[in-house]
């Protein structure tokens, strides 16, 4: 090996390892900054109280309304997403199992759907809301977020379902069970861990998304009780508090950001732990 070749090899190996280590550094940097800034301002009141009068001018209270609003919206949206996503994913893997070209075309469209930005879903949710004569409310927020997370849910569940050996499906059908029985009693049971991962991923995405609920869920200091009431969400609450010029309110925005990050970390790590055994991983 001549000298120039060796230097080039060393140089690029070093460069590429710097690139991948820098990702760990960036993640650590973001999380440390958010947590240090956030836990500094975090009090117990933040998590257990809704905003009192003058909260946005530095008054008493917390962001419980936003935490609950986010959980309601993400939870409701996940339920709708399960209702649409689970049967769709099962259909792709049971009924269409012999039509590879069609399966791949559907996956291709779903992947493309995944790329549509959430602000477009938000704008669509808004037009739909006006069309149906609804106000900005919990329900409108739930529907919009559900549309956003369903493609994610289908594709994640589908990735697990398509790793299940075809023999299982064939033997179930050969014993005379209908497509439905095969889908729910064999495929669904086999892919259950993937199903849970898909729900958690979709739920996490639903909690964190701000652009889609900006138009549709409204914003209020009250904790929503009914579906037709407006609801605050954690990302929007961070956003609004941060645009205030008052330092205490901005500090609270950082604390809320730490709460949101913590929720997302818990969801993401749980999903990972659950899917570890089953998921088709990119990196071996």
């Amino acid at each position: 090996m001549n000298r120039r070749k060796l230097i080039e090899e060393r140089f690029f190996k070093l460069l590429s390892s710097i690139a991948s280590y820098s990702l760990i550094a960036i993640l650590a940097f973001i999380i440390v900054i958010i947590f240090v800034k956030g836990f500094h301002a975090l009090t117990f009141d933040m998590v257990i109280k809704a905003p009192k009068g003058g909260f946005y001018y530095g008054g008493e209270g917390g962001v419980l309304n936003a935490i609950l609003g986010s959980l309601y919206i993400a939870g409701g949206a996940s339920i709708i997403a399960i209702g649409i996503g689970m049967p769709a994913a099962l259909y792709i893997n049971v009924n269409l199992v012999r039509h590879h070209a069609l399966q791949n075309t559907i996956r291709y469209f779903l992947d493309a759907l995944w790329g549509i930005p959430s602000i477009v879903y938000g704008a669509f949710g808004f037009t739909l809301m006006l069309y149906l004569g609804m106000n900005a409310s919990l329900l409108a927020g739930i529907i919009t977020v559900a549309l956003l997370i369903t493609p994610i849910m289908i594709r994640t569940f589908d990735e697990v379902l398509c790793t299940i050996p075809k023999g299982l499906l064939e033997s179930s059908l050969a014993l005379g069970s209908t497509n439905t029985e095969t889908a729910f009693r064999v495929m669904f049971k086999q892919g259950f861990s993937g199903f849970i991962t898909a729900i958690l991923l979709a739920f996490g995405r639903g909690i964190g998304d701000a652009a889609s609920v900006l138009f549709t869920a409204g914003y209020t200091d009250l904790i929503p009780v009914n579906l037709d009431e407006p609801a605050a969400t954690l990302p929007l609450s961070i956003f609004f508090q941060l645009s205030s010029p008052i330092p205490e309110v901005r500090e609270r925005a950082f604390a809320s950001a730490a709460i949101l990050t913590l929720i997302i970390l818990v969801i993401s790590l749980t999903a990972r732990a659950l899917s570890k055994k089953y998921s088709k991983s990119n990196l071996q």
């Binding site: 958010i34 996490g204 964190g208 701000a210 990050t261 997302i264």
Partner: peptide
């Protein structure tokens, strides 16, 4: 985790 962090966190 980088992919899952909400955009508002990146904004903060």
């Amino acid at each position: 985790i980088l992919a899952g962090l909400p955009s508002v966190i990146y904004g903060v």
